[in-house]
């Protein structure tokens, strides 16, 4: 029991961090970022390159992932999303662009890093063992703690910094924020960069444990969509709740349903469909979606 809860929390912390980036981008720009999973994979590969190939400490790799992805996010917003949003007749056109960027990142990852599964050596060794009831490698605990710290840091940043306030205003009402003198273009760019950075950071964190490969991008995006649907799109608390709920469901489901074969995700999906039929906007979303 303790083991299942701990696994769920560990998964949930990572998931929440992925969902945060996606929901931030969505709330600011109304863009469903299909490339989020690819950004996550890219972040993982950057950390891998810095740590395993250049032999630098893990924390440098993590910072490198964050910086590279933030710059990438800013450039994507400025040169791709901004002109398309301005010119297109329907908001949904950005989805084609996002999907195109997802393909593009896949291609770039393939050319730069190849298709092999990559991982970096453990950051800390040893296993935490509480009376055989709860067994958790130290590196997983470290990663979960880092993820939680990042989530807390992100919330504080959004809550108390000037930039965070501006972005929240933008998410609430774009026109009103603009009328109040918020530089919409600038904060959209920062927001996108921040969202991409979060994806990259999770990639960097997880490359130490599960490793990373090219094929992980798409499934990660789908999972991130699930989380923000559970919690409600565009709401920060919803993304965190969604992440932890999905992590917990996965952990509990894998234990309970193991006897019936590989049906955990089927059950999760069906539950979600029923849940959304009753509450279309998710746990904390705005009813107008």
């Amino acid at each position: 029991m303790e083991q299942i809860l701990a696994n769920g929390l560990y998964l949930g912390a990572q998931y929440a961090l992925i969902a945060l980036g996606l929901t931030l981008i969505f709330s600011l720009m109304n863009v469903l970022n299909f490339a989020h999973g690819q950004m996550y994979v890219f972040g993982g590969f950057v950390t891998y390159t810095v740590v395993a190939q250049l032999g630098l400490p893990f924390i440098v790799g993590l910072i490198a992932s964050a910086v590279v992805l933030a710059v990438m996010g800013a450039l994507i917003e400025k040169f791709l999303f901004r002109p398309v949003i301005r010119k297109s007749k329907r908001d949904e056109s950005t989805m084609l662009l996002a999907a195109g960027i997802a393909f593009f990142l896949d291609a770039v990852i393939l050319l730069l890093f190849g298709e092999k599964q990559r991982g970096v050596p453990k950051v800390v060794n040893g296993v935490f063992n509480w009376d055989m009831r709860l067994i958790m490698p130290y590196d997983r605990i470290l990663i979960a703690a880092l993820a939680v710290a990042l989530i807390v840091g992100f919330i504080l940043f959004m809550q108390y910094s000037r930039t965070g306030r501006a972005m929240r205003a933008l998410a609430q009402d774009r026109v009103a924020a603009q009328l109040m003198g918020v530089d919409v273009d600038r904060y959209s760019m920062i927001g996108f960069a921040l969202g991409a950075m979060l994806a990259g950071l999770v990639g960097g964190l997880l490359v130490t444990i599960t490793g990373i490969n090219l094929g992980m991008g798409g499934p990660t995006s789908v999972k991130a969509f699930l989380m923000i649907m559970i919690g409600g799109a565009g709401v920060i608390s919803g993304a965190i709740a969604g992440g932890f709920i999905l992590g917990m469901m996965e952990s509990v489901g894998l234990t309970l349903l193991a006897a019936y074969g590989d049906v955990t995700y089927l059950v999760i999906f069906v539950t979600l469909m029923i849940f959304l039929a009753i509450r279309p906007q998710g746990l904390m979303g705005k009813p107008w979606g």
């Binding site: 109304n30 469903l32 699930l226 923000i228 590989d262 069906v270 039929a277 906007q281 998710g282």
Partner: peptide, 26 residues
């Protein structure tokens, strides 16, 4: 039920639907 959803919510649910179909087939 799902056509009551709009915008990205509908998009994401239908995306999940493809996964549901695959997993059901499995």
């Amino acid at each position: 039920p799902i056509l009551r959803l709009r915008g990205v919510y509908f998009a994401m649910v239908t995306l999940v639907l493809t996964e549901v179909a695959r997993l059901t087939a499995l």
